[in-house]
C-alpha cells in the first residue's frame, strides 16, 4: 500500500534499481563470507550439543545468505518493492516448517489425558 501510493504519484520513477555498488563493498563482503565459512567449519569441531551445533551452522549460513542478498544482490539500498520481493520467499518458507510440528508432537498422544 505504502509503496503503491509512492510509485503512483511519481510514475515509474522508483529510484534505486540502478545504483552502482563500489567494488570495495563487494570485496569486503567476500572476505566476510570467507571468514564465516571458516567459522562454520571450525564450529563443527567444538561440541555444543546436537542442537547447539545445528543452530550455529544454520545461523552462520543465514548470515552468509543475508550478506549475499544484501550486498552481492544489491538489495540493500534498493526500492522497498525489491526488498519486499527479496524477503517474501524467505518469509513464507517457514510456513512449510509447520509440518515439523506434526512430527514433533505425534508421540504426545498417550501421555496426556483428555478424559
Amino acid at each position: 500500500m505504502e509503496h503503491g501510493s509512492h510509485s503512483s504519484e511519481i510514475a515509474y520513477t522508483d529510484s534505486g534499481a540502478a545504483h552502482i555498488t563500489p567494488p570495495s563493498t563487494y570485496f569486503k563482503t567476500y572476505v566476510i563470507l570467507l571468514v564465516l565459512m571458516v567459522a562454520t567449519i571450525a564450529a563443527t569441531f567444538r561440541d555444543f550439543g546436537t542442537v547447539g551445533n545445528n543452530a550455529i551452522a544454520m545461523a552462520i549460513a543465514t548470515t552468509k545468505a543475508t550478506l549475499v542478498v544484501a550486498y552481492f544482490m544489491q538489495v540493500k539500498g534498493s526500492s522497498r518493492l525489491t526488498i519486499m520481493w527479496a524477503l517474501i520467499g524467505f518469509v513464507t518458507l517457514p510456513f512449510m516448517w509447520a509440518t515439523m510440528v506434526d512430527y514433533l508432537t505425534r508421540d504426545w498422544i498417550p501421555h496426556i489425558g483428555w478424559q
Partner: peptide, 16 residues
C-alpha cells in the same frame, strides 16, 4: 496455513 485439514485421519498428530 491450513493444508493439514486434509489429513485429520492419516495419522498426523492430534495437535497439528
Amino acid at each position: 496455513m491450513v493444508w493439514g485439514h486434509h489429513m485429520f485421519v492419516t495419522g498426523q498428530s492430534l495437535y497439528t
